[in-house]
Design a protein around this nucleic acid. Structure first.
Lengths: 76, 76
DNA sequence: AATAAAGATGACATATATGTTTACCCCAAA
DNA sequence: TTTGGGGTAAACATATATGTCATCTTTATT
């Protein structure tokens, strides 16, 4: 048995909340963060709201811009 | 400035190596792991060889099957 | 009220993760 | 020497992350 869709959705949401938490703690707007890593502000909004299944590469960029270790983005 | 392509490639490779390391420590074949989480053995091979940009959902499934916390997959 | 910044969201395009199938290379056991 | 398991990989299909652009709401500021 694999993981339920509900559980998966929770992971997406928690990841998004973690990003938002770190972004706000740095005093960045979504646009600031987006510009920092050359992604669209639309993407940041989608990610923070748990609407996307982020990729490793995007997570690496986010961690870099937020000044944390990659693994910290997955601590929730 | 964002992260270089070389750096990104390293992350993909390291993630793959981490998966391989954990899989082998559990005595699983790629097929065992693939079956466990309902993905293709081809995908496992691609991931372990750093040829794909894995998604959060796939990482969650892998962590689950490998019996580790999600963040442990990103410790390298 | 008027303006602007911040965020959310829809629609469509493009790139690519993963599914699926097939085939190949090793290597160990018969 | 075959046979089968483990791994790699090519080729194509499908699903979706992200880009791009537009619009809308909310909130703060003037």
């Amino acid at each position: 048995m694999s993981i339920s869709k509900e559980r998966i959705l929770e992971y997406k949401k928690n990841f998004g909340l973690r990003v938002r938490e770190l972004r706000e703690s740095k005093g960045f707007s979504q646009l600031d963060l987006a510009s920092e890593i050359n992604v669209e502000k639309t993407s940041i909004s989608r990610i923070e709201n748990g609407r996307t299944n982020v990729t490793l590469v995007t997570a690496v960029k986010l961690a870099n811009a937020l000044g944390v270790e990659l693994k910290n983005l997955f601590e929730f």
